[in-house]
Computed example of a mutant assay.
Amino acid sequence: MTEPRTNSGVKTLGIKVPDALHAQFTLVAQLDGISLGDAALRAVELYVQTKRSEPDFAARAQAALEEIEREAAARRGAIQGLFGEAASAAEPAAADTTERRGRRRGEQS
């Protein structure tokens, strides 16, 4: 079932629908007493639920996750290559500066 919608964490989706399908969609939503937006949301939820139950879906999702991890590792390596050891050495220095600033303001660490 759908959860109440709020403005935070919501994306707007615009789609083109053939006239005949739009007329049917509108009629079905009216018969169910819901808005087109709510009907579309239900359709998307049903689509996701249906795809999740496909036998190869988990394997395809795992492959996509592994590709994301490979791309992230490549990007991380590229950034580290740009800054080399300087980036690693700068991180502890930044923490030390923050601690010193806090002490100067009378805060205890």
Rank of each mutant, 00 (worst) to 15 (best):
60 R>N: 10
62 Q>W: 12
90 A>M: 13
76 R>E: 09
57 F>C: 11
65 L>M: 10
63 A>T: 06
72 A>W: 01
81 G>S: 05
71 E>I: 07
77 G>H: 00
64 A>L: 13
58 A>F: 06
62 Q>T: 15
68 I>L: 14
79 I>Q: 07
63 A>P: 01
77 G>V: 02
89 A>Y: 03
71 E>H: 07
58 A>V: 15
57 F>N: 04
63 A>L: 10
64 A>Y: 05
88 S>I: 06
67 E>F: 00
74 A>M: 05
66 E>I: 01
89 A>Q: 11
58 A>W: 06
84 G>Q: 08
80 Q>E: 12
56 D>E: 14
61 A>I: 10
72 A>V: 04
76 R>A: 11
83 F>P: 00
81 G>A: 12
68 I>D: 06
63 A>E: 11
82 L>I: 11
57 F>T: 11
57 F>S: 07
74 A>L: 06
69 E>V: 05
64 A>P: 01
66 E>S: 08
75 R>M: 09
61 A>C: 04
63 A>D: 08
78 A>I: 00
63 A>Y: 02
63 A>Q: 12
71 E>D: 04
55 P>Q: 13
78 A>C: 00
88 S>L: 10
57 F>W: 08
80 Q>S: 14
75 R>Y: 02
62 Q>K: 15
88 S>D: 10
62 Q>S: 15
89 A>D: 11
69 E>S: 04
78 A>L: 00
65 L>P: 01
65 L>A: 13
89 A>H: 05
60 R>F: 13
84 G>C: 04
55 P>Y: 09
70 R>V: 09
83 F>E: 02
60 R>I: 12
60 R>K: 15
87 A>D: 14
63 A>V: 00
80 Q>D: 14
89 A>W: 03
63 A>K: 13
65 L>Y: 03
67 E>N: 06
68 I>K: 05
59 A>E: 05
63 A>S: 05
72 A>F: 00
86 A>Q: 13
